[in-house]
Design a protein around this nucleic acid. Structure first.
Length: 182
DNA sequence: CCCTGATTCGC
DNA sequence: GCGAATCAGG
């Protein structure tokens, strides 16, 4: 669907109200992506939507090495397990709250049987712990304990396809790297 | 990882 | 004009 006057007006309204591009895309629905919204916003010259003071000098982006895209229709010899995940077109679930994120705790957890999530997830039963030699492609290689003592072992959980760690430790490692990067 | 807006350029 | 891909940042 194209940009009808109606849709453009709704776009303007929501944009000026401060909604994010993806939120607006969700409101417009019908296959509209956040990129489409942002692109339209720029063409409408609506970019600046709240600048009380001063004009932040848009930093010129570094010279771009011509991205170039458009995949050739010819079959790429890429193995299926390396190809991209097919995204369900326009299934944008956006349950996140942006302003204030309130922690919704269930009553049960609040009252009695509450166990700290971290402790619970980090604990690995003895019979699941692995020594170095027990590791293989499918075992989480997250080290635990002091390598110099014998209570050193590896997580041993089921490793993800995307990395050497289980889901829990993979996320942990990535978050750390992301923050230290740049 | 999730997300945000900004930009470029083939279409 | 459109918007995917990309960049840059939170």
């Amino acid at each position: 669907m194209g940009w009808t006057d109606e849709r453009v007006e709704l776009l303007k309204k929501l944009w000026m109200e401060g909604l994010s591009a993806s939120q607006i895309a969700g409101e417009l629905g019908d296959g509209v992506t956040r990129n489409a919204v942002i692109g339209k916003v720029h063409r409408l010259k609506l970019s600046a939507r709240a600048k009380p003071t001063n004009t932040a000098p848009r930093s010129r982006p570094a010279p771009r090495p011509a991205p170039r895209r458009v995949a050739s229709p010819v079959s790429s010899g890429i193995p299926s397990h390396l190809s991209q995940k097919p995204r369900p077109a326009q299934t944008m679930s956006r349950p996140q709250v942006m302003g204030a994120t309130a922690l919704a705790m269930t009553p049960e957890l609040q009252t009695e049987v509450y166990v700290a999530p971290q402790t619970a997830e980090l604990f690995i039963p003895e019979d699941k712990r692995l020594s170095l030699l027990q590791l293989n492609e499918q075992t989480c290689k997250w080290p635990i304990g002091d390598p110099l003592t014998k209570d050193f072992y590896f997580c041993g959980g089921h490793a993800q396809e995307s990395g050497p760690y289980c889901e829990f430790h993979s996320r942990k490692a990535y978050h750390q790297l992301d923050k230290k990067r740049r």
